[in-house]
Write a protein that binds this DNA or RNA. Structure first.
Lengths: 135, 135
DNA sequence: TTACTTGCAAAGATTTTGCATCTGT
DNA sequence: ACAGATGCAAAATCTTTGCAAGTAA
């Protein structure tokens, strides 16, 4: 890993990832960034994201739509995926340590941790459904 | 969804997905299939996988390596991902219903289910490590 | 015969890379 | 001035599609 110079673009990308509740894709980050730095390029967004991942400041996750989503590392948390609009949001629930423990005792394997995704319909989509429904 | 004719290739793909403990990618399925049906094409493997998914016989999952893995639907189960070799295997552990319940009471959201991935080092990789280590 | 299936090649989509230029230190 | 950062375009990957030929029913 080469020494890193300070890069305004990279820091801004980190801020954008931290700030968003949804977990942005490279494409979405690029669109946002482009408004503030019109010369920004998608290729370099990818490059910077990968550096952030390498530095352990950002995590890369797949949520089933075939595109990578990025997530600032702020301690463990789970995710909620809306089955209708595919939006991914943080799900604030204390880390279920006992699940890892349970898994560990069930197998001889070396288990270091777990992730959970919850599925359902988000509030926004629930509202949309109700609006369209005859009462 | 058009009516489906019986297709030997599609059924064979389903068998291959069901039979493997690891969760194969399209590329891997294609390689295996090619040995028995040399004329098989990758494009058609994708087409058949997508039909199996559409029919609800197979599930498509991403495990963080940027490629889709396929999984025969045999009831709920979790997954174990080796952080060293990235192999994904089924993790047989009873479905933790209480987690969904807990999540449901913690938020007003409509929650229908969850998936869990466990991370760690698989037995094969542990062995490899120990071999290389001075005792 | 009809219309689903297949192989092939081309097109799409997402991510990575090479190279010349720019910039922080 | 040096070495990392950037923009651009090309390449690499993975997945989907159009089309003509094959095949189950």
């Amino acid at each position: 890993m080469p020494p890193r110079r300070k890069s305004r673009q990279r820091e801004r990308i980190y801020e954008l990832i931290s700030a968003s509740m949804e977990h942005p894709t490279a494409q979405r980050l690029f669109e946002t960034l482009k408004k503030e730095m019109p010369s920004a390029s998608l290729g370099n967004v990818y490059r910077n994201i990968n550096i952030l991942v390498e530095e352990g400041r950002v995590q890369c996750r797949m949520f089933g739509d075939g595109v990578e989503h990025y997530d600032a590392i702020t301690g463990s948390h789970y995710h909620f995926i809306c089955e209708r609009c595919r939006t991914v949001t943080d799900f604030t629930m204390p880390l279920q340590e006992e699940i890892t423990a349970k898994a560990r005792t069930m197998t001889g394997n070396t288990i270091t941790g777990h992730t959970i995704q919850f599925f359902g319909i988000c509030d926004a989509c629930v509202k949309k459904t109700n609006k369209g429904r005859k009462q």
